[in-house]
Design a binder for these strands. Structure first.
Length: 615
DNA sequence: TTAGGGTTAG
């Protein structure tokens, strides 16, 4: 449809009635009053305003002799009309004023009025009405085009995404070029509202309509797709856009690197890093942050340190993100001193720590059991104007739970709730875990079930903890029922969940069920890990099947599993108990060669193996 | 105008 055809087909929405002579006369009188008026606030003879109707208001506002300030004056006067027969400006009045403001190039004011149109409940109307009014007020297509563009942005600002699409389609079908920056306004608004599923569809419309695609819009949509788990689609989009000549930048690659890392897809990560190199895009501080996290995750802090050094040597300035990452990993791995050195270094470099940085340090001190240090840090944080937040409260609760101080943990929860943070799934599962550690399984179970009653949705950790409790209590029926329940709620059991069940069977010498559960788990694509094997080895040992235990133990390297201190301890103890002392000592040497430090249990088992009669 | 940082389970 050509532009002119479109204009002709628009239904006329105003004036509703042709102007009567009396309307015109009254409109002229008001206009005259406005033109001559110098008083503020505006004084209009009540005899003029008592008979107002929408048509008169329109005639006044569209009268070119009434200058813009007077129009605004009159408009505001009507909005706050003090008279009993109040005639508020209707949609037509708003649009007439918007068009006048546009004509006078007062774009900011026009946008404010248009915003009132879109956000005022009393002015709700189909987009087609606004469109029609704009066209009728302004026959010049160039101006109408700009008005549509502004309307599109105003709808986006007001989260009226459906209406945005309608305007987009109006513009497209009338050959109006659509501004890529306006599309960006839409994309950003959608993202801010977390309606990520809308991004891709809109981007496709942009592409189909010939809107200029920029690296910004492309990256934003790729990120949106990644965040809703559509990493493959995001990658395809990247490839498609590269073919169209859009050049990805460091933000684009970092977005995909992050997504692949979250999926544990190291192939994808490598591909993106290679692409960066091929395209001559150097790593920036965000890339280093991602790489440091990726390497620390597998406890390769040395590699993380090397990357941090490399970043500094390349002259890339560290920021609060990368420092917080380094601090956080050092805290998790127990290097609290190093974490505080980094914290000081940050300050020396003029970087200001934020809530995330403090939370990482609080976590470090909690994990190290330095609860007094935590108090000092919290005080410092608060004097700097940072309030304790939910994450920090949960971290504190965990800190106290890990030290068996359940009452202190309850106290934290109470303070947290006084501050307006309802306990969330983290708080509940942390306290439940603390109770489990103290063998208060029944209380932990009741707590988790009460959490559900209070409307907090259980997640995989909660279900797994419950399953673990049921198993420890020997209630395998309820444990299996819980697995079915979590599956029905869309929460997929993972290897930790199955390990809880397997360990439960093993501890009760129900080895047939244990192996059957492992097979079930593997059918679902989950891979047995060192915990699975340790439980099985333990189960076979206590069931008297030491050869089977030894077979499982020797199978681990084939599955790329490295026995840990517990695995060795269990196997050594099993061998010792049946008097196979030589093999036990051989394993002890093997364990030391593997860099593991034997603990008291290992020694006790070995000593016991030498005195089988006393064990 | 697009990316990266803090809390829970075996």
């Amino acid at each position: 449809m050509s532009t002119s055809n479109f204009f002709n087909t628009v239904k006329r929405v105003f004036p509703i009635n042709p102007s009567s002579k009396s309307d015109e006369r009254l409109a002229k009188l008001i206009a005259k009053t406005l033109i001559n008026s110098t008083s503020k606030p505006l004084q209009i003879d009540p005899s003029l305003t008592s008979n107002l109707n929408p048509n008169i208001i329109h005639l006044v506002l569209s009268n070119p002799n009434v200058k813009i300030p007077s129009c605004l004056h009159f408009f505001r006067f009507l909005k706050s009309n003090p008279y009993p027969f109040s005639q508020k400006p209707n949609l037509q009045a708003h649009i007439t004023l918007v068009c006048r403001l546009f004509q006078a190039r007062k774009f900011a004011e026009a946008k404010i009025i248009l915003n009132q149109v879109v956000s005022n409940e009393n002015l709700v109307c189909p987009t087609s009405d606004i469109v029609s009014m704009m066209i009728e007020s302004y026959e010049e297509p160039k101006i109408v085009h700009k008005l549509f563009d502004m309307l599109f942005r105003v709808y986006a600002d007001n989260k009226r995404f459906e209406e945005c699409l309608e305007i987009f389609e109006y513009m497209k079908s009338n050959g109006f070029e659509i501004d890529d920056r306006s599309c960006m306004v839409y994309l950003l608004a959608v993202k801010r509202c977390d309606q990520l599923d809308l991004l891709y569809d809109f981007f496709r419309r942009m592409v189909d309509s010939g809107v200029k695609i920029t690296v910004y819009s492309m990256t934003l949509v790729i990120d949106g797709l990644c965040k809703i788990g559509e990493v493959g689609k995001a990658r395809n989009l990247l490839d498609e856009m590269v073919d169209r000549g859009i050049e990805p930048n460091d933000y684009t690659y970092n977005t995909l690197i992050d997504a692949y890392m979250k999926k544990l897809d190291s192939g994808g990560v490598k591909e993106m890093l290679n692409a960066m190199e091929k395209n001559g895009i150097p790593y920036n501080v965000a890339t280093y942050t991602l790489l440091i996290n990726w390497n620390s995750r597998s406890e390769e802090m040395e590699e993380a340190e090397r990357l941090f050094e490399e970043m500094n040597q390349r002259g890339i300035l560290g920021d609060v993100h990368v420092y917080t990452t380094m601090i956080s990993w050092n805290c998790k791995l127990g290097n609290t001193k190093k974490a505080f050195r980094l914290f000081d270094e940050m300050a020396e470099r003029g970087l200001v720590p934020n809530c995330h940085t403090y939370a990482a340090l609080v976590n470090g001190l909690c994990k190290a059991g330095h609860m007094e240090g935590v108090e000092v840090l919290l005080h410092e944080m608060q004097t700097k104007g940072y309030n304790l937040n939910r994450v920090i409260f949960n971290t504190l609760i965990d800190g106290y739970c890990k030290r068996g101080m359940i009452d202190e943990a309850w106290r934290c929860q109470s303070i947290m709730e006084q501050k307006g943070f309802e306990a969330d799934v983290f708080a509940y599962s942390t306290i439940a875990h603390g109770l489990c550690k103290l063998n208060r399984h029944e209380e932990a179970k009741r707590l988790l079930l009460s959490m559900v009653d209070r409307g907090v949705a259980p997640n995989i950790v909660v279900f797994t903890t419950l399953i673990d409790i049921y198993c420890k209590q020997g209630d395998f029926v309820e444990a299996k029922r819980t697995i079915r329940e979590m599956e029905s709620k869309g929460e997929k059991p993972n290897v930790v969940t199955y390990n809880a069940l397997i360990d439960g069977y093993c501890k009760k010498s129900m080895m047939k069920e244990a192996h059957k559960t492992m097979r079930e788990m593997e059918v679902k694509g989950l891979v047995a890990d060192v915990y699975t094997y340790t439980s099985l080895v333990h189960g076979e040992c206590i069931s008297g099947n030491i050869d089977e235990a030894a077979r499982l133990f020797s199978e681990m390297p084939d599955k790329r599993l490295v026995p840990n201190i517990i695995t060795y301890s269990v196997m050594i103890s099993g061998l010792s108990k049946v008097g196979r002392s030589d093999e036990a000592f051989k394993l002890y040497d093997q364990m030391k060669e593997a860099g593991l430090t034997p603990d008291d249990k290992v020694y006790a088992a070995l000593v016991g193996s030498l005195h089988p009669a006393t064990t």
